[in-house]
Structures are given as C-alpha cells and as structure tokens.
Nucleic acid binder design. Sequence first.
DNA 1: CGCCATGATTACCC
DNA 2: GGGTAATCATGGCG
Length: 459
Amino acid sequence: MDEQARIMQALGGVSLAGHSVQGGMALPPPHGHEGADGDGRKQDIGDILHQIMTITDQSLDEAQAKKHGLNCHRMKPALFSVLCEIKEKTGLSIRGAQEEDPPDPQLMRLDNMLLAEGVAGPEKGGGSAAAAAAAAASGGASDNSIEHSDYRAKLTQIRQIYHTELEKYEQACNEFTTHVMNLLREQSRTRPISPKEIERMVGIIHRKFSSIQMQLKQSTCEAVMILRSRFLDARRKRRNFSKQATEILNEYFYSHLSNPYPSEEAKEELAKKCSITVSQVSNWFGNKRIRYKKNIGKFQEEANLYAAKTAVTAAHAVAAAVQNNQTNSPTTPNSGFQMKDEEFQLDSAESKNTLLTNMFTGSSGSFNLPNSGDMFMSMQNLNGDSYQGAQVGANVQSQVDTLRHVISQTAGYNDSLGGNSLYSPHGLNANGGWQDAGTPSSVISPTEGPGSVHSDTSN
DNA sequence: CGCCATGATTACCC
DNA sequence: GGGTAATCATGGCG
C-alpha cells in the first residue's frame, strides 16, 4: 500500500475538470473543491468520507443520476486509463490465476459416503442401496421389518433435509454470484475490473459456499452414521434361529460332512428354507465348521442324530427308488432313481452320492455299518458314478436286494441308536481342514481310536 | 446371576 | 471374495 500511496502522490495534481484526485480517492466528488493545500486536503477527505457515510441516504434515482453523470463525463476515459495504469503498476491484477483448487479429499470422502448411504445420488424411492444392504445383513425378513422400515423412514428424512438444504444453498450461492457479477460488471465501467477478476471472485464465492456445503454434508454424514449405528446395534441383538431352521442347517451340515461348504445356490436354497439370509447361512456354516472342528467330541451325538435322520429320509427315497426300479424298467438301473423328498431335497447326483456314501460307509464322516464295504460297492452303481470304479454292468436284481437290505438295516439301526459312537467324523484331514468332496478318506477320527471307526452297531 | 450356546463381527490369510 | 480363528455380545437355561 505504501507504493500505491506513493504513486497517488506522484499523480497528485492531475485534475479532472477541477476535481482533485489527491489523497487516493479515485472518485471525483460531485461538487468541486479548490485548493490543494494541507487544510483544504483534510477538509476534502472529511467531505468525501461524509459523502460515503451518507451515500445510503441518497435516493436511488439520485445515485443513478450521479453515476450517469460520471460515465458521461468527458474526462472519464482519461480517469479510467489512469486507474488502469495504477492498477497495473501496483500489480493488483496479477493475483488472479492461481490455484485450480484440486478436489478436496475430505469433500470427496463425504460425497462418496453420502452416495454409498443413498443420501446423495439419484432418487430411489427412499429405499436406498444402504438400506437394502442393511436389510440383507439384518436377518429375518419379518423379524425386524419394523426396525428396518423405521431405519428407511429416518434415512429418507435425512435425505430430504439434505436435499432441501443443498438446494437452498445452491440457490443462495447462485443468487449471490449473479448479484456480485452484475455489480462487478457494472463497476467495471468505472474502474478496471477484468473478466478474469470477476471469475476469480466467483471462485471465491463458490469456495465459501462449498465450505458451507461441506458442513451440511458433514452433519448429514454424522446423522446417517448415528442412525446406522443405532440400527446396527439393534441388529446386533441377535435372535436364535428357529428350531426348524437349525435342523435344516444341521441336516445339510452333517449330510455334507465330508465337504460342508454349500455352494452359492445351496446357500440360497437353505436360506429360503430357513427364512434367513444367505449371509446368515454363511455365518452359520462358518461358525459350525469352526466349532465342530474345535470339539468334534461334543458334536458326536448331534452328528449321530442328524445322520440318522438323514439316513431315514434317504432310506425312504431309496425305497421309492426300489419301487420305481421294480415297476418301471428293471433293465436300466439308473432310470427312475430320483430323490423327490420335499423335506430334504437333494438336487444333484453328487449330493445323492455323498448322502448315500455318508449313510453307508464311514468314509465320508457319517455312518459306519457292518458289511459296509459290500454295500459301498453296490451303492456306487446306483448313481452311475463311483468313487472306486463302478460296476457298470452290475446285476440289477442284486442292487435291488442290496437296497432292501440297506433299508432294513437302516431302520433297525435307527431304532437301536443309543448314543454310541456310531459316527466317526471323517472328512477332516490331518491338517485340520476338510477334504475334498467325494474323496472318501481313511483318516481316523482324531478324538477316537481306530476301534471306533469300525465299532459294531450290534445290528 | 453365572455359564454356556450361538449369531455376528473383525482381522487376517490365501 | 470366501475361508478361518478369535472375539464380542446376547439369549436362554439352571
């Protein structure tokens, strides 16, 4: 500013139609002052200040008239060029093009979060992806639907407030920007303002407003987080699954003990049957695998129980198959062998095979019956593929006989189930992991001696 | 109220 | 991304 004052001093004496530009005042006062002496200058400044202070008292028309008078003044172009020169010399205009302000990471984070939470972004009927995701992870569809709808309603509320406020801010920002731009454009007729400067001013205004916007976004994020945490807290209040659901899951687990990793489809199927979500099924299997592996002994009884259940179910299916085989086409062993049990539907040949081997051999971590070797060989053919070389051309009648044998044995076995260690948990390998499906193992239960593997069922 | 069962979450691994 | 292991936190029972 020193320099500017100096320049102004140097320019002192340049008079425009008797109006002094001394003292740094660019605008010539409307009525004249003589004298450039000290006292007169003071008086001059005081006068100008007074004018400025009382400018608001003037009527708009009066001001407009004055402005017009100034613009039409014959010396105005000269004054304008002088002002331009001063400005150039003082370097006031060279502060324009500076930062191309890079996107604020904080703002980006907030934006991303709001988008993810479904607050920002395209309208989606209030539901939002986040709510849907939360719903998916929140378990029983009917159980917490109330909480869920509550969550959605609150989220919608937040969303609405956010959008209203955002709109308000934008509107205010636009209004203010146009106002300032108009003002500056207007002023650019009397003082040197380049379009670049106007642009810069607009940028400044936008930055100011975006900082306000950021606050809005931040508080919206906070609100969503609070809502979400409350919702998640509520979700954390776990409910035990229904007995039926647990049963279904256990049945699947123990009948696939050799490879208790349900496929995505199987998970969906189980989820549907149990009225739980797929992720809950995954959770359940994750927990089950871990806990089973950790303490196989503890699960022995349960395993027996479910294996027996499965066996009975399967036996029914086998009986049906036998019936089918006898009545339909005895020459084609595989035709008609379909498990149609609605209660425990096995939808692939692989699973049937696993089930059967689980039932009748100890090799996949399920039952262990006397003469199982025989039956194992016989059973393999039923599904056409075998673990140990199928007897492709096996005698159909012998298979039917074997099946009858199996059924009677299974039934009897089931009756005599008395908590004996009938079941040996194979499928678990020495490394503590499960073996691949369909590869019967000879690994012996870590919790039991070899004897238990072939323990007689007294049946 | 303490204990165990159990569903969910988290960190880490492959 | 799905799995394991550890852990948390609640439900439920004696």
